[in-house]
């Protein structure tokens, strides 16, 4: 419906009309986690998915690598090189994971095998996807670690011998060693301290520049979003409510939710506490019409009845809100 062809450049990955429903086949209530998501990510671009818990941001990230639970229904298309990732058999997806698309998580310790050294992690990954000999694999790994600032003398250490930030660096090195086209970062800096968070964000920006990798950054932290994003997609209740360049979202927000979200950030120059009233929507029984209407300060009668059409302000900046419909 809202397929976007913003520029002539071919997108790296393209999500079209994606719907995701949890608990589709068993007796529990269906959770409508994402509805009608459209998103293109270009080469070397950093796109942030922002939203509260329950906005569907992590679900979308997981759907790209087919990491969702078994009884989940996905409709729509996630296209990479003309292939629809949602329809690929498990073996082909496995090929793509780590090679074309890789992912880093909030909790690196949970993703690293405590019984394997850093070296073994790299060798295993490289053996699965390449036919490098051992020597070349080690050389590649040391290069990748060097890029993220881990000295080579730590190559044979175990994950628990590293600090939290170092582990996240190792995860990034593992994610980038095969030079993937897209890196999905799911709350990758959330559990880190501010100083380390800043270091990791710098690192992410540097490596995307160096390898021309795109990043899909999933977070609820608007500070992080402002630091690294080229474009921002704001999600609410499983729907996209606004998208645009970082500059547009932060300086000319249109949707009342985006405005509320930006105002509620506590920064060094904040003088008064502001927030968005109400609680996140129940995705089992989502509100009718625009999902934000029960919390919206500018709610109108028609907001309760139907989800608004897209309003475009320019090629990149778009919102879905009845306030702007002509």
């Amino acid at each position: 419906m809202n397929t976007e062809q913003e520029t002539g450049e071919k997108p790296n990955i393209s999500i079209k009309n994606l719907d995701i429903t949890y608990n589709y086949e068993n007796d529990s209530e269906e959770v409508k986690a994402a509805r009608d998501i459209n998103l293109d990510i270009k080469n070397g671009e950093i796109v942030s998915l922002v939203g509260e818990s329950g906005s569907g941001k992590s679900t979308i990230g997981s759907s790209i690598l087919n990491l969702l639970p078994k009884d989940t229904l996905t409709r729509g298309k996630i296209q990479l090189d003309g292939k629809n990732l949602l329809e690929l058999p498990e073996n082909d997806i496995r090929e793509i994971r780590g090679k074309d698309i890789s992912k880093i998580f909030q909790d690196p310790m949970g993703r690293l095998n405590p019984l394997m050294t850093v070296e073994q992690h790299f060798i295993e990954l490289l053996n699965e996807h390449t036919d490098f000999g051992k020597e070349k694999a080690i050389e590649k790994s040391i290069d990748a670690l060097n890029d993220v600032g881990i000295p080579p003398n730590r190559f044979e250490d175990y994950p628990h011998e590293f600090s939290g930030g170092m582990r996240q660096r190792i995860m990034i090195a593992l994610a980038l060693v095969l030079n993937p086209r897209i890196l999905i970062a799911d709350e990758a800096t959330t559990s880190l301290d501010v100083v380390v968070q800043s270091q990791i964000l710098n690192l992410l920006r540097d490596v995307t520049e160096k390898y021309n990798t795109s990043i899909l950054n999933i977070t609820h932290n608007l500070g992080v979003v402002a630091e690294i994003s080229d474009r921002v997609v704001v999600l609410y209740g499983g729907k996209v409510v606004e998208k645009g360049s970082a500059e547009e979202i932060f300086h000319k927000p249109k949707h009342p939710y985006t405005k509320g979200l930006i105002n509620s950030v506590i920064g060094l120059d904040t003088e008064e506490l502001e927030w968005v009233e109400g609680t996140p929507p129940d995705l089992v029984n989502p509100p009718s019409g625009c999902p934000f209407h029960p919390r919206c300060p500018q709610v109108m009668e028609k907001c309760k009845k139907q989800f608004p059409e897209q309003t475009g302000f320019n090629d990149s900046h778009k919102t879905w809100c009845h306030l702007y419909e002509s």
Binding site: S198, L201, G223, E227, A246, H251
Partner: peptide, 17 residues
């Protein structure tokens, strides 16, 4: 190190420890 929620104030070199 505190991230600024403003892309205009984006600084690459924050002079961090």
């Amino acid at each position: 190190a505190i991230p600024r929620a403003d892309p205009r104030e984006r600084e690459r070199d924050k002079n961090l420890p």
